[in-house]
């Protein structure tokens, strides 16, 4: 197929003539996807914005009673809302952090050659495919008070094993975090593994010849080189975790009390349990704003790290 004489053909003239063609085709190719995305994201996002400054009539769904920033004002001023917002950040932050901290050694492990690695890679990927509702059911089975596996395990090791894991707000929140981390680990591990595979072998070989131990190599080579990979994964996991819904719905329904209600779950409760679309819309936008703010901070951190490692100049 590759022909030297044709390669030598006068390309510039051909290129210049083809640019409009190419762009026209590109626009044609991307248009359907953009139309779908605009119709299902952009237009609804605009409608929700209007809901958030109005009282929505639940029968006609019309949002003509303008109330200004009333719904947002309530979110900022009400103490319960503040605790829900803080809980959302805590839930998302801890889930993301644990996922990366646990995913990292798993990725390191999967990057080595050992008997059974293929099987382990399959097992590590599986939770990604488990429907969140099923995840809720199986963690429910683990956390069940009398006959749950967790209490059973504690009893096996001589403990009392009578803890009602989902009966107390703090415990229930952390139980949810564990369940979410389990389901988030596959993607995070794969992303980190992809990053590990790009690290230069030569650096490790040189370090080993110099007598650097495993821990030393990890600290001096792996960790600094992986920071630019780990931070985006952390950001991705955070965004993903604050949007958690299914597992909360199945395991705790936001309870006990409102101890596991995150902003996202609150949007659902406001809209579909209290039928208050206006406040729900405002809560949804508050969550978005919160996410973007935290992303801004993390992005700034990433930039600082890039500057310090000499990747870019300040």
């Amino acid at each position: 197929m590759l022909n030297i004489e044709q390669r030598a053909a006068p390309l510039p003239a051909v290129r210049r003539r083809r640019i409009p063609d190419q762009t026209r085709l590109a626009l044609l190719f991307i248009a359907p996807a953009l139309i779908v995305v605009a119709g299902v994201y952009l237009y609804p996002a605009f409608l929700t914005l209007r809901f958030s400054v109005a009282d929505v009539d639940i029968v006609s769904f019309s949002a003509d009673k303008y109330v200004g920033l009333e719904h947002y004002r309530k979110i900022v001023s009400e103490p319960t809302m503040r605790s829900v917002a803080l809980r959302t950040i805590y839930f998302g932050g801890l889930t993301a952090l644990l996922t990366v901290v646990l995913g990292f050694p798993i990725a390191l492990l999967l990057n080595r050659k050992f008997v059974g690695r293929g099987l382990l890679r399959v097992v590590v990927l599986l939770p990604w495919a488990v429907p969140p509702v099923v995840s809720g059911v199986l963690w429910g089975q683990i956390y069940a008070a009398e006959y749950g596996f967790l209490n059973g395990l504690i009893r096996t090791f001589g403990g009392a094993g009578r803890t009602i894991w989902l009966g107390d707000a703090t415990r229930a929140l952390h139980a949810l975090i564990v369940a979410e981390v389990w389901r988030a680990l596959p993607l995070a591990t794969l992303f980190l593994l992809a990053g590990l595979q790009t690290l230069p072998d030569s650096a490790y070989e040189a370090a080993e010849i110099d007598g650097a131990g495993v821990l030393q190599r990890f600290r001096d080579i792996t960790l600094p080189l992986m920071m630019p990979v780990a931070l985006p994964v952390l950001i991705f996991q955070f965004v993903w975790a604050v949007k958690a819904f299914d597992v909360i719905y199945v395991l705790t329904r936001g309870g006990p009390g409102n101890g596991t209600t995150t902003l996202n779950y609150l949007v659902y409760q406001q809209a579909f349990e209290q039928l208050e679309f206006g406040p729900a819309a405002a809560t949804a936008y508050s969550l978005t704003i919160l996410t973007v703010l935290i992303l801004g901070v993390l992005g700034f951190l990433r930039w600082r790290i890039a500057v310090r490692s000499g990747e870019v100049t300040a």
């Binding site: 995305v37 929700t48 949007v267 996410t291």
Partner: peptide, 16 residues
Amino acid sequence: VYLFPTLLFVLPLYIQ
């Protein structure tokens, strides 16, 4: 678009 919570789009979509 993944920065936005799904419910933000689902509210008006549900109405539609």
